[in-house]
Design a protein around this nucleic acid. Sequence first.
DNA 1: GTATTGACCTCGA
DNA 2: ATCGAGGCCAATA
Length: 110
Amino acid sequence: MTRVFDAGGDYTDAVVAVVATIPAGRVMTYGDVAWTFGHAGARAVGMVMRYHGEGLPWWRVVRAGGHPPRGLSVEARAHYDEEGTPLLPAPTPEGYRIDLRTAAWTPDAH
DNA sequence: GTATTGACCTCGA
DNA sequence: ATCGAGGCCAATA
């Protein structure tokens, strides 16, 4: 069931619409975000946030394995700790991982 | 209009 | 666990 979030027709607006739906303490993978509005461009999602992520909770969007964005692992963790996002210790270079088992969120699943 | 980059995903070795 | 290759889409130059 592909929940198509068409926020006006612009890809950027669609990404913002989905990410804005993610509540604090929850996270969503790039692939899920893209799939939610009917596209498969997981990379494009990151692109939109990279250039148009102004005022957007980018830290609530993580990679498939629960890993934070590259180069922003430290910044992201500050938000997770502040919002109470469930984290797990992992042998990753960042030293932690998002608990997708609990923090996994989908706008349609609610 | 084309070429390159990029906060990605999945599979294979 | 690691590394590499291909595919996906959009924004920038």
